[in-house]
Design a protein around this nucleic acid. Structure first.
Lengths: 149, 149
DNA sequence: TGTCGATAGTTGCAAATGCAACGATATGCT
DNA sequence: AGCATATCGTTGCATTTGCAACTATCGACA
């Protein structure tokens, strides 16, 4: 967070601090509302967005940026909570489709207002639309490069 | 990472993905170089920057954005590795100063080239200086607001 | 068809994390 | 001074993470 360095290193340092600080607040807000942690939201949302509300484990892991083993356990918890299901896929007997359940859709919708309010309060309120575009574009390029490299 | 939403939510989503992706790579690079994880670097660097290479536990926790209990354990590990020490402070018998050791300074310097190379490769290379300034400024405002609110 | 290397997902185990509770000291107020 | 309240840092315990190993299946190719 010190400013006496080149702008890029500084940006990286601030990004780390911002992430840690804001995530901490968002998790606290979700917990206070008796809602599951952010990781659950990510999984539910990726599934909801996906064609048919279903995704292979490895693809889901890639999208939420989680190791396979961590996704296995996270999916276990979500499945215990009846928010997702695992179904055999017809064409590859090694794997499964994760499928969001009706209860999962409901939970995702229930979490969103709390999450959204925190994003607004902690992030959106403090930046301009132009800055947001810059951040989104720049970081998306970095992610794309990291995935390809 | 989908683009069909308002720029601010999109920026937030990309920020999360970028953080997860890049941190994963950086940790892997450090591990491959037989170096300690990023959290160790943060602590060492904050101490090195601080007046006298020392900081109270609670202040260090605040700067590295860690809960007190997590910092206690992290400091235990760093102390076991002789990279920091804990000293009683004269004016408050409740707490301690964390002090970076000579070995700690050496380790910090040893980690930096690896860390720096990854920041360059994964982040700096893909953004302009102007974008970096925008990211740093915008996120710093959010952090500041979050700390005050 | 049989074999080899890659991929899918899970599991065991050790390490790290988060939360609540605790002992100790400091601070403020009467 | 004496008591209530807040802060400092640590600890116990349950949960989550990370890594390496493992089983099962796939795909390619001789």
């Amino acid at each position: 967070m010190t400013k006496d360095q080149d702008p890029k290193s500084h940006a990286w340092a601030v990004l780390l601090t911002a992430h840690a600080t804001l995530i901490e607040r968002i998790e606290a807000a979700l917990a206070q509302a008796r809602l599951p942690p952010l990781g659950w939201y990510d999984v539910l949302w990726e599934l909801e967005k996906a064609e048919g509300g279903r995704l292979r484990m490895h693809e889901l892991a890639r999208r939420v940026v989680l190791s396979r083993s961590n996704l296995t356990r996270l999916a276990d918890r979500l499945e215990d909570a009846k928010l997702i299901g695992r179904e055999d896929t017809p064409h590859d007997r090694r794997g499964y489709d994760c499928v969001i359940t009706r209860a999962g859709l409901v939970m995702r919708k229930k979490m969103w207002p709390v999450y959204k309010a925190e994003i607004e309060r902690l992030f959106s309120r403090h930046i301009t639309v132009e800055e947001a575009r810059t951040i989104g574009d720049a970081l998306a390029r970095a992610v794309k490069a990291a995935r390809e490299g």
